[in-house]
Structures are given as structure tokens and as C-alpha cells.
Design a binder for these strands. Sequence first.
DNA 1: TATACCGGTATACAAAAGGAAAGCGATATA
DNA 2: TATATCGCTTTCCTTTTGTATACCGGTATA
Lengths: 131, 131
Amino acid sequence: MEATEHDKRKCPSHLSTGECNKQLLPVKDALDILSGKWKLQIILSLTFGKKRFRQIQREIPGLTPKMLSKELKELEINELAVRHVYDTLPVTIEYELTPYGRTLKPLIAELHKWGTKHRKRIIAGSRKKSG
Amino acid sequence: MEATEHDKRKCPSHLSTGECNKQLLPVKDALDILSGKWKLQIILSLTFGKKRFRQIQREIPGLTPKMLSKELKELEINELAVRHVYDTLPVTIEYELTPYGRTLKPLIAELHKWGTKHRKRIIAGSRKKSG
DNA sequence: TATACCGGTATACAAAAGGAAAGCGATATA
DNA sequence: TATATCGCTTTCCTTTTGTATACCGGTATA
């Protein structure tokens, strides 16, 4: 009843392969937004308040201005962060998480939850393998 | 009271920068497991039952054996999938999601939820920008 | 004048991810 | 003998991602 006789079975009968993949698009979107070497750290940095460019850079060792610039732009495009320009002399610029950006919080919390369990499991597993 | 006078503020006072980054490691783990061009599709394919190598490949247009092989290995290492070798002639091989692999479901659902809202928001936004 | 900070950009390069195509040993089919 | 299927691996190549470094115009500070 559960062996190898399901050669044609793929998706639930009401979904074509194409529809299945379509379901994955939003998942990929969410994943893309969080992916990239510095995104999470930058988002985390901004959850603690408005920050200036150099300030973020100083907080995150190894982060180059090019990368920071690029990632901040992506956050802006996705409306997760805003760039404020203050009319001082010289101009002061600050980046801030938007309320929308803060809606990522529960999602990141879920990732953290699963990731924490996974760390325990895999580390425990590798200990066992040689014991 | 919320302008530029918080130059030293970074993390909550009880967390050092190092501790903050440590909190991000499990999040990155979870992200890494789901990242990669074909992972989600492969996982999805396996949620509908055991599958043989070529079978998965046929279901996912564009997926090369090299990539499939690589991604399946990663799933195995993380104990999200198992590789069964049946003693037939020639040997038959099947891949299956583990119960542990199925624990990804709620996480993927969360990603889907957020991603769906985000799609709507960004698509609506880009319509507005030229209207 | 020289130095440093600000908010970045530009250029060149290296590393990682992914794609295209061929091939391998085995079995089956004609 | 020639062809095809299975479960992959290998090699070479392109694209994407990230790094290193220098630089820009502007202001401030010595």
C-alpha cells in the first residue's frame, strides 16, 4: 500500500505541476528577502533604532560600504526600511525599519525556533556518529 | 526624543554585538536549508510520496542530475530525507522525506504567508508608482 | 596645508552557485 | 550489435555573489 507503485503520483490530484510551483513563488520571495550574507545582521541592527550608514557599518565587522549600500537599497525597494535625509549641513542620513519591516519579526522568530532545534539535533547527531 | 542622539545604541543593553550575532546563527541555518534554487521544489515533490531519482528530475523541468544529486545529499545530511536502497536487480533507489523533514511544514507555511502578503503589497505598490 | 569623517560610488578581482554536456557500469530490449 | 533506462559523477563554463581598494565632493578640525 505504500511501496513503489506510485510512479505517476506527484502533486495532489487537484494541482498541476505548474500550480505547485506557483505556490512556491511567495515562499521564495520571503526567502530571498532574508537571504544574502548581511541582510539579517542589518535588519537586526535596525530593530534597535534608527542608524546612520557608517554606524551600521561599524557595528557589523567585515561589512563593506558597497555591500551595505546594496543591501539597504534592497530593503528600501521592499519597503522594509526607509532612508531619511535631514536638512543639516552636511546632510544627515538615517535608516529606519518601517512598521512593515517589523512584520518580519514573527517570521524570523519561526526561523529561529526551527533553526535552534536543528542545531541541537545535528550537533547531537555528529557527536553520536563517532561515539 | 527620537532623533540623532542615540549614537551608541545598538543592541539591548543585556546583549553584546557578539551575542546578537550568535542569536542569528540558527536563523541562518534554517535559511540555508531552504535556500538554493531547487530545494523547495524537491522538498515539495517528496511531500507527495517516495520518489526515485529520475522521477524527481522528470517532475522538475530544468533540474540537472548534478544539482539534484547535490541537493538530495544536503537533505540527507540534515536528516530531512532518507535514501532507501532496495535489493533488486538492478538496485532500486528511493528518496523519502523523514518525519523530521516534515517538521519544516509550518515554517514553510509561515514563509508562504508572509510572502503572499508581500507579493500583493509590492505588486500593488509598483502599479501605483506609475498611476 | 593635512587629516579625518560623512555617504556613498567605481573598478577589479575571487569565490561560490549553477548550467551543459558527456560519460560510466550495470541491466534490459530489439 | 545498437539502443535505452537507472543513478549518478566529472569536466568545463557562465553567472551571481561577495571582497578589496580606491576614490569622490563636501565639511570639520588642527
